[in-house]
Amino acid sequence: MSDEPQSTLTHAVPERAEPQVAGETVLELAGVTVELGARRILDDVGFRLKAGELTGLIGSNGAGKTTLLRVILGLLEPTRGTVTVNGADVGRSVGYVPQKFMLDPDLPVRARDLVALGIDGQRLGVARPSRERRERVARMLGAVGAADFADARVGRLSGGEQQRVLIAHALISHPSLLLLDEPLANLDLHSARAVVELLARIAREQRIAVMISAHEMNALLPVMDRVVYLADGRAACGRAEDVVRADVLSRLYGHRVEVIRAAGRVLVVAGEGDDAEPTHPHHLDAEEH
């Protein structure tokens, strides 16, 4: 396939000054609670993300995925709790691909320009053009398989093409953490698999902690190291096989759910009866401490 990413990212991105130690904690959330108005959107959420790992942030519509990502980015102040990125406060070392992305087709911004804005779009003034800069952008576009439409206006690209350009925009500044909000929502099965594989490779090869939100976990199952499962604002975290279990998810939802596995896919469905354990279990971590 010509749209499969060809080159590898280690080639695309110069090595970082300090290579990270395997499994170093990149992000830590503790006791994060978000109340908007009278509603509690997130309730005592805590987990860690490690370098080189790909984590799925799973939850149905309205579960609080976008809210959680906005808290991590520092766009939303939590009511309680702390967010620590790289041992420091949230810096600019976080790459982000937002959920809804509708661009004006007439916007005079090529894919190439948007990726270049990923290098230093927050700085004042006009960027000084240089060959090094151009080549860096071109390598990044190549690495996400976006070289073919690098000169098209971003607003005129398809959803999947825009997704790749945005990933390049987020990655080019060497973040230690990459957050993607529903990146697979607009993709067909083939493109979704290509993007998931690309992200998994980015996580491994660049030692980046990657977090992908999704309301449907099956596309992520083959590559997901860990899962943060959100329901009613509360989270269960750990390895997929430890979290995606009837007992853990029943406690999380506060009512009985079944986890059905068939043909390598997982389905979470509401169960019969209502014999779940009491709600508000505060230690849902299925993680082995």
Binding site: L73, L75, R92, P98, F101, L103, G121, V154, L166
Partner: peptide, 9 residues
């Protein structure tokens, strides 16, 4: 282009 992308940076 996107207030959201800018804010995240």
């Amino acid at each position: 282009v996107s207030p959201e992308l800018a804010a995240a940076r």
